[in-house]
C-alpha cells in the first residue's frame, strides 16, 4: 500500500516537473518605465537580436537590442529619418530594414551593420510603403502598399542590391529550420 502511495507521489512529481519544464519562459524587455512605449518587435532569424520602435523625444525611433546581454546597439544611419515604423531583421541581424521619412516621402531604408552602409529603396510608381518584411537571407523584401483602395503585398528582389545574410549553423535550431 505504502509502495503504491510512494509510486503515485513520484509519478505526480515527475508530471509536475515535466509540465513546468514544458511551459514557455517569458521575459519582459527592460525599458524606461516613466515613458514606456515599445512597439513593432521584430526578431532576427537566429533569435539573438530584436528591433523595435521606441518613443525618443516624441519621435517613433527604431532601436536594436542584443537579447543575450540586453545591450542597445548603435545604428549609424537610422538615428535620422523619423518617424520609423515596421522594422525587420535578417538572419544574423546584419541588415535592419525599416520604413522611414525623408522630407515628405516614406521610403524603406536598409542599414548594413557589417559595413556601416545604408541603402534607400524606392518603390516603382512612387507608391507609399506601409509595412515591410525582409526575408531571413535578405534576398527579398515584401511591402504592404495601398493601391486602388486596397492593401496589396508586393515582393521585390534585393539580390542585385545587397549581399545575402545566410543563416549560420552556430545558432541553435538553425540547421533544422533551414533544411526543411
Amino acid at each position: 500500500m505504502s509502495f503504491k502511495n510512494n509510486l503515485t507521489k513520484i509519478i505526480y512529481g515527475i508530471t509536475l516537473l515535466g509540465l513546468w519544464s514544458c511551459s514557455p519562459r517569458i521575459d519582459r524587455l527592460p525599458g524606461d518605465f516613466s515613458a514606456r512605449s515599445q512597439k513593432d518587435p521584430a526578431l532576427s532569424g537566429n533569435g539573438q537580436k530584436l528591433a523595435l520602435i521606441v518613443d525618443q523625444n516624441g519621435r517613433p525611433t527604431v532601436q536594436l537590442r542584443d537579447l543575450r546581454n540586453g545591450q542597445i546597439l548603435q545604428l549609424r544611419h537610422l538615428s535620422r529619418y523619423q518617424p520609423h515604423s515596421s522594422p525587420s531583421l535578417s538572419w544574423n541581424a546584419r541588415y535592419l530594414a525599416v520604413i522611414a521619412q525623408q522630407g515628405n516621402r516614406r521610403l524603406a531604408i536598409i542599414e548594413d551593420l557589417l559595413t556601416g552602409r545604408s541603402y534607400q529603396m524606392t518603390i516603382p510608381g512612387a507608391r507609399v510603403p506601409v509595412r515591410l518584411s525582409l526575408s531571413p537571407d535578405a534576398s527579398k523584401l515584401a511591402f504592404q502598399l495601398a493601391q486602388k483602395g486596397k492593401w496589396r503585398i508586393e515582393l521585390f528582389d534585393l539580390t542585385n542590391k545587397i549581399d545575402l545574410d545566410q543563416p549560420t549553423l552556430t545558432s541553435p535550431g538553425a540547421s533544422s529550420a533551414i533544411n526543411q
Partner: peptide
C-alpha cells in the same frame, strides 16, 4: 527563424511592453 523565440507587443496598464 528557428521557431523557438517569440517577441510580443503587449498592452499593459496603458503602455506598450515587449515580452520575449
Amino acid at each position: 527563424g528557428t521557431g523557438r523565440v517569440l517577441a510580443v507587443q503587449v498592452s499593459r496598464g496603458g503602455s506598450w511592453d515587449v515580452d520575449i
